[in-house]
C-alpha cells in the first residue's frame, strides 16, 4: 500500500525548470529518503505535496485520493527554512500550530504535554521562544510538526542545528513514529543518516528523478565485485580474472589492496587464489555507501 503516489509532476519557474516529469511512490510506513544536490528540485516537490505551490502538470495521490485541502490535516511538514515567533510563549505557539492543523484546544494541550514528557522537556508552556536555545527551538519545531499525529511526516534537513545527542533523540522518535504507522519523507544531504534510517530512497538531480527504490536494492545494484584485501608481503601477479584497482602499503608490512573480480569468478575463488600468493589477514567486500552512489550518479548525470 502506498501512502503517496506522484505521477509525472512537472514545474517550471520563469527562467528554469524545477521538476521534469517526476514520478515516484512512497510506501506506507516507510522512511523515504529524498536526496539530491542543491537546487535539484527537492524543495519544490515537497512544496507541491504540501499544496504550498501548484504543479504545472501531473497528479499526486494520497492514500489513493487526488491531493486536496483535507490532506493538510494528514501531513506534518518541517521545512528547511523554519522559525518561530520569538515573542510568543512556547505553549501558545504549539497550540497555534495545532489549531491551524484543525486540532481542538483541549486535545492540543494534552498532546503538547505528552510530547514534552517524551522529549524530556521541562514544562515550558509559559516560556518565551526567544529565551530558548537554538537546539531547544528545534525541538519545539519538531513537536509542532508531529503534534497532530500526521500520517505523512515530511522533514527537510531535520538534523541541521541539533547537537549529536538531540539528533539521536529525534532519530529515535522518527523510528518510533514509523513503528506506530506514520510514513516519513526525509530530505537531506547528510548521507550517514540516510543510510541509517531510510529503507527507500529517490535521487533527484537537475529536475529529473534519476534513481529510486529500496535502499538495499540500490546498494546491491551498485556493487562492483570489488574486495578489500589486507595482506602481509607482496601480492604478486594475479590471474586475468582479477584486476588490482589499487594497492596501498600500510604500517608493519601490511598492504591494503582493492581487487575487482571480472566475470567467471567469485570471492571464494579469489580468496583461494590469494592464499597461495600472500598472507591474507583481512578480506571484505567493498559495498558502496549511499554517499558514493549519490556522487557517482550525479556526476554521471552531469556528464551525460
Amino acid at each position: 500500500m502506498n501512502i503517496l503516489t506522484i505521477n509525472n509532476i512537472s514545474k517550471s519557474y520563469a527562467n528554469h525548470k524545477a521538476l521534469s516529469d517526476v514520478s515516484m511512490v512512497v510506501p506506507k510506513q516507510s522512511i523515504f529518503g529524498l536526496l539530491g544536490p542543491n537546487g535539484a528540485g527537492k524543495t519544490t516537490l515537497i512544496r507541491i505535496i504540501n499544496q504550498i505551490i501548484n504543479s504545472d502538470g501531473g497528479t499526486i495521490e494520497i492514500n489513493g485520493e487526488p491531493l486536496n485541502q483535507n490532506h493538510v490535516r494528514l501531513i506534518g511538514y518541517l521545512p528547511e527554512e523554519r522559525g518561530l515567533y520569538k515573542k510568543m510563549k512556547v505553549g501558545e505557539h504549539l497550540l497555534y500550530f495545532a489549531q491551524l492543523k484543525g486540532l481542538k484546544k483541549k486535545e492540543s494541550i494534552t498532546k503538547i504535554r505528552h510530547w514534552f514528557k517524551k522529549l524530556d522537556i521541562p514544562d515550558w508552556l509559559d516560556k518565551k521562544v526567544e529565551d530558548l536555545s537554538k537546539g531547544m527551538q528545534q525541538k519545539v519545531q519538531f513537536i509542532g510538526t508531529v503534534l497532530h499525529d500526521p500520517e505523512l511526516i515530511i522533514l527537510d534537513e531535520p538534523f541541521s542545528g541539533f547537537d549529536p545527542i538531540n539528533a539521536n533523540i529525534i532519530k529515535d522518535e522518527i523510528l518510533e513514529l514509523r513503528e506506530k504507522g506514520s510514513t516519513i519523507i526525509f530530505s537531506t544531504h547528510r548521507m550517514e543518516s540516510v543510510e541509517e534510517l531510510c529503507d527507500h530512497i529517490a535521487l533527484i538531480d537537475q529536475s529529473h528523478k534519476i534513481l529510486d527504490g529500496l535502499t538495499k536494492d540500490i546498494k546491491n545494484a551498485h556493487r562492483s565485485q570489488t574486495y578489500l584485501v589486507n595482506h602481509l608481503g607482496d601480492i604478486g601477479s594475479l590471474d586475468s580474472y582479477y584486476k588490482i584497482v589499487e594497492s596501498i602499503p600500510m604500517e608493519d608490512n601490511l598492504i591494503e589492496t582493492k581487487v575487482r573480480i571480472k566475470n567467471d569468478s567469485d570471492s571464494n575463488l579469489l580468496l583461494k587464489h590469494l592464499i597461495n600468493q600472500t598472507k591474507v589477514v583481512g578480506f571484505n567486500e567493498l559495498i558502496p555507501s549511499i554517499n558514493d552512489i549519490f556522487i557517482q550518479t550525479v556526476k554521471k548525470g552531469n556528464h551525460g
Binding site: 504540501n50 499544496q51 504550498i52 511538514y77 527554512e81 523554519r82 500550530f97 491551524l100 509542532g144
Partner: peptide
Amino acid sequence: TSKIVEILVSSVKP
C-alpha cells in the same frame, strides 16, 4: 525573514 511562513502556509493558504 524569521522563516516561520513556510510552516504556516503548509497549513493555511497564503
